[in-house]
Design a protein around this nucleic acid. Structure first.
Lengths: 208, 208
DNA sequence: CACATAAGTGTACAACTGTGCACAAAGGTC
DNA sequence: GACCTTTGTGCACAGTTGTACACTTATGTG
């Protein structure tokens, strides 16, 4: 069993990932972070970095994995809380916003990574979004809210929903986390976006 | 008239801006560019930089201004070519894609800037998008395609359209500029996104 | 044409960067 | 308890960075 022998460790590893995340949360762009900077923030000697990551891109990739966990937690909570279908959109957007607030740095990293420097990180985040969209499509299918849509159109709708929400991230991260008024505005707007999309889906007729 | 006394010059200035753009086009992230790197690419001595820009953020801001011009050119072309309303969406998306191709670096800079490091650049790009959306709303009003929408709902629709297209940028910039097949896929998908949104707008009833 | 101002160059330096290497302290396995 | 592997440290070094300063060259104005 020479597979996973990191039994206790991963302490510094975690410190480094948190350090990078912290710097991102402070407004720095991930692409501009250096190894020394991150290790300094983590309170570790620079060469320690190489014990866990090959370079900053590698660290970024591992952050994407953790981001996946955060997103999955969010999805689980949404599924648990959205009981009646009529408040589906409001509830989901509210949950999204609350998670984005609680994990601000993570979501900043996500927003940055979409147009980031590392192709691999970019692809990783995009893949997380695809997964998210496909799960959303499954839920919609299960709830039978959009029965008239074929699979392809349902996928398109889910994709558009996820994108719209993701774009709202940019708005959300642009305002102070304490600015309740602005956040409320963003929540309302995002909600209306999704409502508009669903009205479109409800009246959609597949071409042909 | 001591206003604009840069009569002939601005040569190096332009070289520097193009250099930054070129580097971004090569896959680098703007936030990770340094003064020396840019001047090197421009074939200019490092200290020359300060004759034109205070720092990299300043250069970024000036790039946003130029980006505005690019966007306005695109808008003009779209208005000139979209004669009959039935092909409005297809035509507009096609024009967008062709401009994104022709000015790849510029649009990369735009996509990066939305979640970039400089708050000012971020705000600048966002402002360009708002302007774009408001112009789109005007056009839609003029074409009387969505007469039943009040101003606020029309603004929302335009905003969502612009965002969806902007997000497609991320897709577009993620594939090779020569990959015609993938680009065609993105074109089709973006088109359907917009169609879905417009179906939503056509059936939208303002709440209340 | 003289001259002020702007644009561009060269040199210099202290600070910081990534990373290689040798060693020290843990931790688990026999 | 001997031993190996992983994790963390200290030191070193060459390369790069931003920027200050003093200089040369161009350029448009009186």
């Amino acid at each position: 069993m020479a597979e996973k022998q990191r039994r206790k460790p991963g302490e510094t590893r975690e410190k480094l990932m948190n350090a990078a995340l912290t710097l991102v949360g402070k407004g720095r762009h991930f692409a501009s972070l250096g190894i020394r900077e991150v290790t300094r923030q983590a309170g570790v000697v620079p060469t320690s970095f190489y014990r866990h990551f090959r370079n900053m891109d590698d660290l970024g990739l591992q952050l994407v994995d953790e981001l996946g966990l955060v997103l999955r937690r969010m999805m689980r909570e949404a599924r648990a809380n959205v009981l009646q279908a009529d408040k589906l959109i409001e509830e989901s957007v509210a949950i999204f916003i609350s998670h984005a607030r609680a994990n601000r740095s993570f979501f900043m990293f996500m927003a940055q990574g979409l147009a980031g420097e590392s192709r691999a990180v970019q692809e990783g985040i995009r893949s997380e979004m695809r997964y998210f969209a496909s799960e959303l499509a499954n839920d919609l299918r299960r709830l039978r809210l959009v029965d008239h849509l074929n699979d392809q159109d349902l996928d398109m709708t889910s994709d558009l929903v996820v994108r719209s929400v993701a774009f709202s991230l940019t708005d959300l991260l642009g305002v102070s986390p304490d600015d309740d008024y602005q956040i409320e505005q963003i929540r309302k707007r995002t909600t209306r976006f999704l409502q508009l999309i669903f009205v479109g889906a409800a009246n959609w007729k597949s071409p042909g």
